[in-house]
């Protein structure tokens, strides 16, 4: 679906993205993860042909991005990280206009509004919408022409837990229909849940790329942390897969002196910190 080879790009003369390589397969959800300013949105903009002055090769749907024709966009749906609606028009008027910009037969506006719980607000002006409502509306706007490839820039940011869940379900539903989806997020949990593969991006570089599961497994097994009393509270940590060899723990169990014991599985966040040396957000 997407092939990126030796991609370099800079807003100024100094390249910001350097020699990047990756591939996105058909039908997968691919996540860009990284701190603010890492270049996630920039990368998406290159992929959707908005920044044609890159070096290297970027093929989307078999088309080199910088040479795209306008029917390139018949197959691509974009959800920017900010609202892109006519503020003076209602939600329905906006959707109607945007769906008229494609040759394909559009999806039902009513159904899409219903799916994100905005049907009753359809005739309100977008300027009267809350942030979360705007991002839901922005999202369904990307689906209007039923594109095979979706670019979602932080689709879950600014949503309450209920809407966050709903949004993730909708994204997974699109995947089920065979869509290829690229999304960026700061939220590790969302990424773990949604993405088949993720790329960690920091300062315009991919530092790791794999499935969330593999990344977590590569870090090694979970740790067991336990505490006991012995001249005050003592704590020890041992890897779960070496627990049989931990004499102290065995002794504590035999003597029934354990005060607490729990295991902690690494999260994507831990992996991210390990690899990049910094936290997200």
């Amino acid at each position: 679906m997407i092939q990126v080879k030796n991609l370099s790009f800079g807003y100024t003369d100094k390249p910001f993205i350097r020699d990047m390589n990756f591939e996105v397969r058909e039908g997968e959800i691919f996540g860009f993860l990284g701190p603010s300013g890492a270049g996630k949105s920039t990368l998406q903009k290159i992929l959707i042909g908005m920044l044609p002055k890159y070096e290297g090769s970027v093929r989307v749907n078999g088309i080199e991005c910088r040479e795209h024709e306008k029917d390139f966009y018949e197959n691509i749906g974009v959800d920017f990280e900010f609202s892109t609606m006519y503020e003076k028009l209602t939600a329905r008027e906006n959707l109607r206009f945007f769906s008229s910009l494609y040759q394909r037969k559009p999806r039902s506006i009513e159904e899409l509004l219903e799916a994100v719980g905005l049907l009753s607000d359809a005739d309100k002006k977008v300027s009267d919408f809350s942030k979360g409502m705007k991002s839901r509306l922005n999202f369904i706007k990307a689906l209007l022409h039923d594109p095979v490839l979706l670019f979602l820039d932080e689709p879950t940011s600014g949503l309450d837990p209920t809407n966050n869940r709903m949004m993730k379900d909708l994204i997974l539903e699109e995947k089920k229909k065979g869509k290829t989806i690229l999304l960026t997020t700061h939220n590790m949990q969302d990424a773990t849940e949604l993405c088949d593969r993720v790329a960690f991006i920091v300062n315009g570089e991919i530092l790791a790329l794999d499935s969330p599961h593999n990344l977590i497994m590569a870090k090694g097994a979970a740790n067991v942390t336990y505490t006991w009393q012995e001249d005050g509270e003592k704590t020890a940590v041992c890897p779960l897969n070496e627990i049989a060899g931990d004499e102290k723990l065995r002794q504590l169990i035999v003597e029934n002196r354990l005060q607490s014991i729990h295991s902690s599985e690494p999260t994507l966040n831990d992996i991210f910190m390990d690899i990049t040396g910094r936290t997200l957000v």
């Binding site: 306008k70 029917d71 966009y73 910009l101």
Partner: peptide
């Protein structure tokens, strides 16, 4: 100008309309 304010312009570029259109 209004479309620039609302950022609609950037979106229109990535629809079937395209920049040229």
């Amino acid at each position: 100008l209004e479309e620039t304010d609302d950022k609609v312009i950037r979106y229109l570029f990535v629809t079937g309309l395209g920049k040229k259109g």
